[in-house]
Amino acid sequence: MVIAVLGPAGTFSHEVAVRLSGAEPLLLPTISAVFALAEKGEAIGIVPIENSEAGGVGPTLDGLCRYDVKITGECYLPIHHTLASSVSIDDVTEIYAHPQTHEQCSEAFDRLGLAVIHTSSNAASALKALENRQGAAAISDAAAEYYGIPIILRGLENNASNTTRFIRIEKSGYSGEGIIKCSILIDPEQDVPGLLHALLSPFAKRNINLSRIESRPSGRGIGSYRFFLDFESGEAAQEALNELKKAVPVREFGCYPKLVVQL
């Protein structure tokens, strides 16, 4: 089946899809479009869900809430940003960068002291730098090579261990071997004292490791949140999940393996 990712060519999503499958993916204009196609069963989606520097990726978290899909795998890609331009660093007047890239490279941008203009993707940053000869794009080495823009500065990221986690989404869940993690969405519907403790205690008392917990506004008003939880799979985890489901509405995204990215 075709693999769909956020385009255009040159995004980190594009890069990770090629590294996973060895084939060119279907490039879509938004992360929401990737979810929509996966929900129809017409594609397998690869989307970024969190970055070690900038945190959760909002459009992906919203997509998990809106669309009926399952998570069938995860992978990790080291993220390194370069500054690419047709002119030298002394002649650059502005930097084009995706908001997540800006967060991940904020210290370097502050040192450079140049105006930063946000774009919809790293690929869009590259295209803007091609349009404006005095502009520079904060992009990957692969994107710079793809669009033929000379690299004038490397290592823009705040942290050398900067990493993005991607998930594979499909219409149906994973049923193979190698499962290591499960993901759920908890929607308490109302705020009560001790809520977070009640949500986590089924896992804590069974000594189950939670690898991630993240809140996201529910859309029902200020102070109302949904919670994303990732935890290690196993029999005890299933017991904890069954206990939790008796107390609050829970949506299961499934359990899945770690995917190998060819670096």
Rank of each mutant, 00 (worst) to 15 (best):
A4P: 03
V5Y: 06
L6D: 07
L6Q: 05
G10C: 09
F12P: 00
E15A: 08
V16G: 05
A17N: 04
V18W: 00
V18D: 00
R19G: 00
R19P: 00
S21M: 00
L28A: 07
V34I: 11
F35A: 08
A38N: 02
I46L: 12
V47G: 06
V47T: 08
N51S: 15
N51V: 00
S52L: 10
S52K: 10
G55H: 10
G56N: 09
G56K: 12
V57A: 04
V57L: 11
T60C: 09
D62A: 15
R66M: 12
Y67W: 14
Y67G: 05
D68L: 08
T72C: 12
E74I: 02
L77W: 02
L77F: 04
P78T: 03
L83E: 01
L83Y: 05
A84F: 10
S85I: 03
V87N: 02
V87K: 01
V87P: 01
S88D: 14
D90H: 12
V92R: 02
E94G: 05
I95D: 06
P99E: 01
E103G: 14
C105Q: 04
C105G: 01
E107P: 01
E107Q: 12
D110E: 14
R111M: 06
L112R: 05
G113D: 07
V116W: 03
I117T: 14
H118P: 15
H118M: 04
A124S: 14
A126N: 07
L127W: 00
K128V: 01
L130D: 05
R133S: 12
Q134D: 06
Q134G: 06
G135E: 09
G135I: 05
G135R: 04
A136P: 03
A137K: 08
A137D: 09
I139V: 15
I139N: 04
A142F: 08
A143S: 13
Y146F: 15
Y147L: 09
P150K: 10
R154F: 00
R154C: 03
G155L: 08
L156N: 06
L156A: 07
E157G: 09
E157R: 04
N159M: 08
N159D: 15
A160N: 10
S161F: 02
N162H: 15
T163I: 13
T164D: 07
I167L: 01
R168V: 14
I169C: 10
E170K: 11
S172H: 14
G176C: 12
G176W: 03
K181D: 05
L185A: 06
E189H: 14
Q190K: 15
V192P: 00
G194S: 02
G194L: 06
H197K: 14
H197R: 13
L199R: 03
S201H: 09
S201T: 13
F203H: 09
E214F: 03
P217D: 04
G219R: 05
R220A: 14
R220M: 13
G221Y: 11
G221I: 05
I222M: 13
S224D: 12
Y225Q: 09
Y225L: 13
R226E: 08
L229K: 05
F231D: 06
E232A: 13
S233H: 15
E235H: 12
E239W: 04
N242A: 15
K245I: 00
K245L: 00
A247V: 08
P249R: 11
E252N: 13
F253Q: 05
F253H: 02
Y256S: 07
P257Y: 03
P257C: 10
K258Q: 12
K258W: 00
V261A: 08
Q262L: 12
